[in-house]
């Protein structure tokens, strides 16, 4: 409880901060190929944050004394997707960051193959340095662009997690219909795509419309301000069926954060209005949509 509060306070302080903040000590500032990365420490918590337009955005936060803790709510909520997958053989994380969720999944499901893709080599190096993140049997780290990785990959995944942010933005080519088509092509039967999305902007409706242009159904898992969209083919999964699978997975793998509880919070939304067009490689004004805030009555 207290740890969670402290982590939340730290995240809040850093979200509002300007590169430095009163609570956390800055260990490093690295100009990587892609980002300005701040490494911040408070107690045993180490945060990787990206600087963007004079603000910092928390990309990863982990407790170095307890690497299976997931201090950021959305990193926990992502794991709800394991209740959707009929099998648990292969998982892919696009946007590894500090690797908190991927490592958590790997350690709870050691027989599953978890692959985490990260664009920024400096992030991979920092995750190794501060979080002791390393490859081992059934845990693979791939450096490169997530979409390019999928295009060259021939594995079928039970869940493809998408959590690739650069500061406040998701790169546009990871939000388009063509990207989801590529992802869908790499799903095992019954597999799902689980994406961390930002609900307060027009981009939320657009992402919903885009997912629905490729998948039959999209469910939403609340994630402490963010939302996890879970997209799959076929009719909407019945809540009792989902809960049963969540409970089975919970007892089989002993997840620290209760998957049945996250599934119980599942939400469904009516499809977005018809004037919300799906994003495509041809037309995806992601930065614009991300900056247009909407009062999302459907969600609130």
């Amino acid at each position: 409880m207290w740890q969670n509060l402290r982590a939340a306070a730290l995240a809040l302080a850093m979200a509002a901060g300007c590169g430095t903040n009163a609570f956390a000590e800055q260990l490093e500032r690295i100009e990587s190929y892609y980002n300005t990365i701040f490494v911040l420490q408070q107690g045993t918590y180490i945060t990787l944050a990206f600087g963007h337009e004079n603000r910092t955005y928390v990309e990863s936060q982990r407790n170095t004394a307890d690497l299976l803790e997931l201090p950021l709510t959305y990193t926990r909520s992502l794991t709800a997707a394991v209740a959707y997958a009929p099998q648990t053989a292969n998982f892919l994380m696009i946007g590894m960051g500090g690797g908190s969720t991927s490592w958590y999944l790997h350690k709870h499901m050691p027989d599953a193959n978890v692959t985490a893709v990260e664009l920024d080599p400096d992030i991979v190096a920092l995750a190794a340095k501060y979080y002791q993140l390393h490859q081992e049997p059934n845990f693979n780290i791939a450096e490169g662009d997530g979409r390019l990785f999928l295009m060259r990959d021939d594995t079928n995944y039970d869940v493809i997690f998408v959590d690739a942010y650069r500061g406040p933005f998701v790169p546009f080519h990871l939000l388009t219909r063509e990207f989801y088509q590529i992802a869908k092509f790499h799903l095992a039967p019954g597999g799902v795509v689980a994406q961390n999305v930002e609900p307060s902007t027009m981009l939320f409706d657009s992402s919903h419309a885009t997912l629905l242009s490729v998948f039959d159904t999209v469910d939403f898992i609340p994630a402490g301000g963010n939302i996890i969209a879970v997209a799959y083919d076929g009719p909407r999964r019945d809540i009792s069926e989902l809960t049963a699978l969540a409970q089975a997975r919970q007892s089989a793998f002993g997840f620290r954060y209760s998957v049945p509880e996250m599934i119980a919070a599942r939400r469904t939304l009516a499809p977005p209005a018809e004037d919300i067009v799906p994003l495509t490689d041809d037309f995806a004004p992601v930065n614009l949509l991300n900056s247009v805030e909407v009062h999302n009555r459907k969600w609130e």
Binding site: Y33, L119, F172, H173, E178, D281
Partner: peptide, 12 residues
């Protein structure tokens, strides 16, 4: 860049 990003990434 809009043509290239989907195939070659959005790196520098």
């Amino acid at each position: 860049s809009r043509y290239l990003n989907p195939y070659f990434g959005s790196g520098i």
